[in-house]
Design a protein around this nucleic acid. Structure first.
Length: 559
RNA sequence: UGCCCGAUGGUGUAACUGGCAACACGUCUGAUUUUGGUUCAGAAGAGUCUAGGUUCGAGCCCUAGUCGGGCAACCA
């Protein structure tokens, strides 16, 4: 069979053209450059998929580079978490690097620029500099320190480095063009004084490079050929190239920055700043709260790594802004889980069923398949007895013929067990049903092959034997925000759209096997959805998180 | 009153160097089913932002406009 040709995206086309244009394949290099100031989210999966994907395609190295140029925001915890997430997704980096590895080289280059007259120390307040910078429609003007002598610049810069100044007193700026149409070219800041400890270099430095000054040079030092980033960096490209021009030697090829549109998903926020705010305010339990769009949260929620990768691959890569429907992500999660998750029985909203013609005190074990989608998944035994639990919603005293569940006088099958018939109900003084009395057909046992077992009934219910049922804490999640674009309203804070019912705690009953499943194991509660064992599980309690529900056409129609 | 991006069904992406718009999700039918899941069969839904132009022929090329996004952090 011929392979189906996958369409290429514009970034692959760029690489391909560079190769055709004579770039040796061995010069190819990519990088994934997160700032360790928060956890990675689903948007980063797209970025990773692009750069790691290209690396895989061309067998070129992909570095993991922590862009750690701002000690005020960055922490080791994030470095650790980011590596864990990347490994969980299955991407492989060539080397771990840090922008801070290059602080000395960057400093030396800065000195060289000062000597060349292309960088100077500015000693004004940030307000004054902002004033001189102009606006997008108004050109900037030169500040009073722009033409300081090389000697004075060198001396001041050296003192900045040695920690002789307070933060904010001086900065080093590139001398480009205060009237440039691109604001970033109006003498951008290269260094600022920061008297804080850095997570790796400690107190060695008192000056730290800005993003624009560090990023391209780091790419250059690592031999990155294609530095791929999101659209917001588009205007930075000009500066990126300008800085490279100042420091390049003629031997080494220059990296090129290219931009793609970042991933957005409806009903969610994707900025690290906003996610941090949710964590710090206690709105969610942490970066890995299953309602968050972070990789750690999705892992805890039960999303398989392959589902995330399939998702971002399907979404594609272009330069236009996009908002993906959450249902697409959920589709890939279900697709993966349908293939792999063991089917189990659990009842989330139990009501007791008594089989009046089943012998009291007796228990039998029934065989049930682990996964009808996987022949090799095997079977397991389920206890069955006179008293059971079923879902409250699976019974109505009377119902129309569209109701494929238990009613009085009609038959349904209990999954992997027997056919039962509703006979009567017991109610409390307020009229709530406390027990449903039914009779069963002993000859209708599942898989027995008897004529009785083969007869058609209008529905099949899941159930749990009351005596052997184990209690479960089930955490059912709904979307965190009720608005399609929580951060898309100019006059409203995204937090105004928080869904008050995004977390529902449920005490449920499950079959015995649910007690001893490993943390992280994903199962399907039959007819309900996919669930995963939460790390909060311990000797006392068993906790399951709802990953995603099954598709439910009936609920949709009756809604 | 500037500069830079972008514009294809509800959503996202395709359409080789121009050859009568495809795929996935979603929606709707029907079949199968011991999960109202899965699977299978099928349907509806855009004529590609607008107006000109080039061409035998334009979603692809050109021009002008419209609309959307971005650009004034000692963040990345």
């Amino acid at each position: 069979m011929s392979e189906e040709k996958k369409p290429t995206n514009f970034l692959q086309d760029i690489v391909e053209e560079d190769l055709k244009g004579g770039m040796p394949k061995k010069n190819l290099g990519f990088r994934f450059p997160p700032e360790p100031n928060g956890y990675l989210h689903i948007g980063h999966v797209k970025a990773m998929s692009i750069s790691f994907g290209l690396g895989e395609q061309y067998q070129a190295p992909v570095n993991l580079r922590f862009d750690d140029t701002n000690p005020a925001k960055e922490e080791d915890e994030y470095v650790r978490a980011i590596q864990e997430d990347i490994q969980w997704l299955g991407f492989q980096w060539a080397e771990v690097r840090y922008s801070s590895d290059y602080f000395q080289q960057l400093y030396d280059w800065a000195v060289k620029m000062i000597k060349a007259g292309t960088a100077y120390v500015d000693s004004q307040s940030s307000e004054a500099m902002a004033e001189q910078k102009g606006t997008p429609t108004k050109p900037g003007v030169a500040g009073p320190y722009r033409d300081r002598s090389v000697e004075e610049n060198l001396e001041l810069f050296d003192k900045m480095k040695r920690g002789e100044f307070e933060e904010g007193k001086h900065v080093l700026r590139a001398k480009i063009d205060m009237e440039h149409t691109n604001m970033l070219m109006r003498d951008p800041i290269m260094y600022r004084v920061v008297n804080k400890a850095h997570h790796r270099t400690g107190t060695e430095w008192h000056i730290y490079p800005m993003y624009d000054w560090a990023h391209g040079q780091s790419d250059y030092l690592e031999g990155i050929s294609h530095s791929l980033c999101s659209l917001e960096f588009m205007p930075h490209r000009e500066l990126y190239d300008w800085f490279l021009d100042q420091i390049k030697d003629d031997e080494k090829p220059l990296p090129k920055q290219r931009e793609f549109a970042r991933l957005n998903i409806d009903y969610t926020v994707m900025s690290k700043r906003k996610l941090l705010a949710l964590v710090e305010s206690g709105t969610v339990a942490g970066w890995d709260d299953p309602r968050m769009p972070t990789i750690a949260a999705m892992r805890r929620r039960g999303y398989p790594p392959q589902a995330l990768r399939n998702f971002v691959e399907r979404v594609g890569v272009t330069r236009r802004e996009n908002v993906i429907e959450l249902s697409l992500l959920e589709y890939f999660v279900r697709e993966e889980l349908n293939r792999t998750a063991t089917r189990v029985m659990a009842v989330l909203d139990p009501v007791k069923v008594v089989i009046t013609n089943y012998p009291e005190g007796e228990t039998e074990y029934l065989s049930t398949e682990n996964n009808p989608e996987d022949e090799n998944a095997g079977t397991r035994e389920l206890p069955f007895g006179r008293e059971l639990y079923i879902e409250r919603a699976d019974f109505k005293e009377e119902a129309n013929r569209k109701f494929f569940r238990l009613t009085l006088g009609k038959e349904v099958r209990l999954k992997s067990a027997y056919i039962i018939k509703g006979e009567s109900v017991v109610k409390d003084t307020e009229g709530n049903i406390t027990e449903i009395h039914v009779t069963y057909d002993p000859k209708s046992k599942s898989g027995s092959g008897t004529e009785e077992s083969l007869r058609k009934v209008k529905g099949t219910l899941h159930w749990v034997a009351a005596e052997q049922a184990v209690s479960l804490e089930v955490r059912q999640y709904d979307r965190l925000f009720m608005d399609e674009a929580p951060d898309g309203h100019k006059d409203k804070e995204f937090t105004e759209f928080l869904n008050p019912d995004s977390l529902q705690l449920i005490q449920a009953y499950g079959e015995p096997s649910l007690k001893d499943r490993a943390v992280g194991e994903r199962v399907q509660f039959q007819r309900l959805g996919y669930f995963v064992v939460d790390p909060d599980t311990d000797a006392e309690k068993t906790v399951y998180n709802k990953t995603v529900g099954l598709k439910d056409n009936w609920a949709k129609k009756t809604h």
